[in-house]
Design a protein around this nucleic acid. Structure first.
Length: 838
DNA sequence: GCAAGGTC
């Protein structure tokens, strides 16, 4: 009988590899794939078995709302609290779910008796993995339910608040960048920390203080003494003490003490501490630091870089790790010293039960790595060597003096053992020599300075300080901290300035001040703690999953209702900070209703605002917009605009601001950039009907007038780009297909005529007289770009970049709608056939 | 377009 089969699925590929290596003793066969599979024969519960070890990649499932709730304008955010949720594949591209499901099924069929176990190890080390295999436990459903609970709560709370406040403030103020004004139980308290520091700085009231600083001359050196009172905030009192001291003039040494002190070596390096050092000492942001670390890990220079543990496992091979660095040109001598004199057992640290601390795995020198990677690697090495080095020891001498009834002192520091500070020199204790004193010595003061100083506010919060605060308050995890910081930067709530200091923006400050005046809980770190604590009850099996979720959501729903009710208070702060629409923007084009100029507001989302009609017209985003020759839309009299998408191959197209926001014709089921959702009939911002989708029969800018022929790539229509001269071109109104027309022509225009053979629009080309291909120097030529031999030889199909990200989906959406809007008969021919010669 | 948390 074939040996029983054992399938093991780890949480990530690195752990699958560790498990397989440990159980098989390195004797396994590894198959590459979306996730690697390691196969080998071994022993399972005392019996021979055939193992397959693979992994998922992070969470298999994410959650989201069903389609019905995806339309922002059709859903009241308060309904989201009770909305159903769907599990979706977290990484559909990786096909993890499908692959694992099928392999589990295959395994089930192969196994005579199916059983599920969980190997729960306390660290990713061979010893602990083997130990776990010998005491397998049941999978813990409570822990899985706790993960579900967190996903549901985070989704509903975050999305409800985000949609509400975005909808409320978007488009209300001209100089407010408000594409999305997000809220989240992690990102908002993170922002809160930055703003709290900002408020400390701005509300700081400096105070003057005074300190007595007697100076003495000993052996030709001047020494300044420190006052036991440190400093006083009353000048008259300080002056009085100065007078007393000056009257006495003689200092007496009252006491001398020597103390052996020690500065401890660091514990092992975990991810959070790596990120803090990377930010404060190397100037790398957390994302950059993790990318570098990831690369160093893949190249085998350092161990797995995502860990919370600072304690080394008892089985850690210090000798081997030191040995790997023994010949390093940078630290070789130091390492050999440690190996011969005996390295020290590291400080205990904390064991989070995951990977061991981050350590070097093999030696590298400066030339083998890129500059930044080298600097990070260097730190990992120095830190590791620091952890196994002796502590730094020094003697602290304190000499105490009295004069005029006041007491002063000076401190001397003498390092006896440099220890780990010789490999981490920035942590060194600086030597401070004192002259010889003896108790009872009497010394004349040379000068008694009355130092005047001022208390100063703290600096902006550094990224490194923020990471510490987040860690301390349980905001985010080692894996997500950097994502939250990145988030508040991208949302334009804070900016990273020199020295990686986080400076909140007007938007960030106003938001936090708003929460503070409506419901401070919303931006306090405890909000995360509350959620985590509730979820913990589920994980430990002490409370029912759905009861906890309902309870937490009910609380947040009440907070949400109160927030909505009180939003005016927040808005008052916005009003004070940002300019109302009417005051911002520049006059761009005329409104078709009142015939006055509307203002263009360039901050996101860019839009037009008619001050007379008090109407906002959204525009396509991420490009430039200008007036189109003062032409007007025949339907509504609004002046037309030309929008040019960013980039060298960015298309340009005309649009009417009114039609763009309120498509005038029935049957336009797809809009620029997205399908129009039937139920609500409202437009997403930045989504609408440009002229190239307009079926107006006579307007010269419509699809009918500017459409030339069917797109060879999709169901769309190729349209003349009206301002592409002299690089004339057609672009598809649906996909990113691009067709270059005769270059350098003076003018190219569509005509009202159709090709008798293929029904394409006849175009008229006015060639440049110097480069005209026509005989006898003629410049004017009309024809069909498909059937006219001359024109056909002068056009070229190209693919523009990023016209639409998802051209395929777009084309399908149009396909369902038939050939509507494609002009008279343009859709009849087989588009691929018509471009067969290209 | 929206959260957070996994990992790549």
């Amino acid at each position: 009988m074939a040996p029983p089969k054992v399938l093991m699925v780890a949480e990530k590929p690195s752990i699958a590899l560790s498990i397989a290596s440990s159980i098989s003793g390195g004797q396994m066969h590894s198959r590459k794939g979306s996730t690697d599979v390691h196969e080998f024969e071994g022993m399972f519960i005392g019996l021979p078995a055939y193992f397959k070890v693979t992994s998922v990649i992070g969470h298999v499932f994410s959650v989201d709302f069903p389609a019905k709730y995806q339309d922002w304008s059709a859903t009241d955010p308060i309904d989201l609290f009770q909305a159903p949720i769907q599990k979706t594949e977290a990484n559909p591209k990786e096909k993890i779910y499908a692959l694992k499901l099928s392999s589990v099924l295959v395994f089930k069929q192969m196994m005579l008796e199916e059983r599920f176990h969980r190997a729960r190890f306390s660290s990713v080390t061979g010893k602990d993995i083997l130990k776990a295999m010998n005491c397998l436990v049941e999978p813990n459903k409570c822990e899985a339910l706790a993960v579900d609970a967190r996903q549901e709560i985070d989704l509903k709370v975050g999305v409800a608040f985000t949609r509400y406040q975005t909808g409320y403030f978007q488009g209300k103020y001209g100089d407010l960048d408000s594409r999305v004004i997000s809220y989240g139980p992690c990102q908002t308290p993170t922002l809160g920390f930055c703003v709290q520091r900002y408020l400390q700085i701005t509300t700081f009231k400096p105070e003057k203080f005074w300190a007595l600083r007697p100076h003495i001359m000993v052996d030709g050196y001047e020494l300044q003494l420190e006052w036991e009172r440190h400093r006083l905030f009353d000048m008259d009192v300080a002056l009085m003490f100065q007078k007393l001291v000056l009257q006495d003039r003689i200092l007496e040494v009252t006491d001398m003490s020597e103390k052996q002190e020690s500065k401890g070596r660091p514990p092992g390096l975990n991810t959070v501490n790596l990120l803090k050092i990377a930010s404060s000492a190397l100037g790398f942001g957390p994302q950059m630091a993790m990318q570098l670390a990831e690369r160093l890990y893949i190249q085998g220079f350092i161990s797995y870089p995502r860990t919370e543990s600072t304690a080394y496992p008892s089985s850690f091979d210090f000798k081997g790790t030191l040995g790997a660095l023994a010949n390093n040109p940078m630290w070789g001598d130091y390492v050999q010293g440690l190996l011969s004199d005996g390295y020290h057992k590291p400080q205990s640290g904390t064991d989070a039960g995951d990977h061991p601390p981050i350590t070097p795995m093999r030696s590298a020198n400066e030339d083998m790595l890129e500059r930044d990677a080298w600097r990070l690697y260097q730190y990992v090495c120095q830190h590791f060597l620091g952890t196994v080095s002796p502590n730094c020891k020094y003697i602290r001498t304190k000499v105490e003096f009295s004069i005029g009834g006041e007491f002063f002192h000076c401190i001397g520091l003498h390092v006896t053992v440099k220890g780990f500070t010789s490999i981490m020199p920035w942590l060194a204790v600086s030597e401070k020599n004192l002259p010889q004193f003896a108790k009872g010595d009497k010394i004349e003061v040379s000068k008694v300075e009355l130092f005047e100083g001022q208390t100063a506010p703290p600096d902006y919060l550094s990224e490194s300080e923020l990471i510490s605060l987040m860690e301390k308050n349980g905001i985010g995890t080692d894996a997500s901290i950097s994502a939250h910081i990145n988030n508040i930067c991208e949302r334009n709530y804070v900016q990273v300035q020199a020295g990686r200091k986080l400076v909140p923006t007007a938007l960030g400050i106003t938001l936090i001040r708003g929460y503070q005046c409506i419901d401070p809980d919303l931006c306090l770190p405890d909000i995360r703690g509350f959620i985590e604590q509730q979820i913990n009850l589920v994980a430990k099996g002490e409370a029912d999953h759905s009861c906890v979720v309902q309870h937490v959501l009910e609380q947040f729903k009440q907070k949400y209702s109160y927030f909505v009710k009180q939003i005016d208070n927040m808005d008052a702060l916005f009003e004070a900070q940002f300019s109302p629409l009417a005051d911002s923007g520049r006059a761009l084009s005329k409104c078709g209703k009142c015939l006055r100029y509307m203002k263009y507001i360039s901050s996101q989302p860019s839009r037009l605002y008619c001050g007379t009609c008090e109407e906002v017209y959204y525009l396509p985003q991420k490009g430039t917009i200008k007036l189109y020759k003062e032409l007007t839309c025949p339907l509504d009299n609004f002046e037309l605009l030309i929008f040019s998408m960013a980039g060298p191959e960015g298309k340009s197209f005309p649009l009417c601001p009114f039609c763009y926001n309120s498509p005038p014709f029935e049957g336009i089921d797809t809009l620029f950039g997205v399908s129009k959702t039937g139920s609500s009939g409202k437009l997403g911002k930045g989504t609408g009907m440009p002229c190239f989708l307009c079926p107006h029969p006579t307007c010269r800018h419509s699809l009918i007038a500017q459409g030339v022929c069917a797109c060879p790539e999709c169901n769309g229509t190729l349209v003349l780009d009206p301002i592409s001269a002299p690089k004339w071109r057609l672009y598809c109104n649906m996909c990113n297909c691009l067709v270059l027309l005769p270059q350098g022509a003076h003018r190219i225009a569509t005509t009202r005529e159709r090709c008798p053979e293929c029904d394409s629009t006849i175009i008229e080309v006015d060639f440049n007289k110097n480069t005209t291909p026509l005989e006898g120097g003629a410049t004017l030529h009309s024809g069909c770009i498909l059937c006219d031999d001359l024109l056909h030889s002068l056009v070229e199909v190209k693919h523009g970049k990023s016209f639409f990200k998802r051209a395929g989906r777009w084309a399908r959406a149009r396909g369902r709608g038939g050939h509507r809007g494609r002009g008279r008969g343009l859709g009849k021919m087989d588009p691929k056939m018509s471009f067969r010669d290209f």
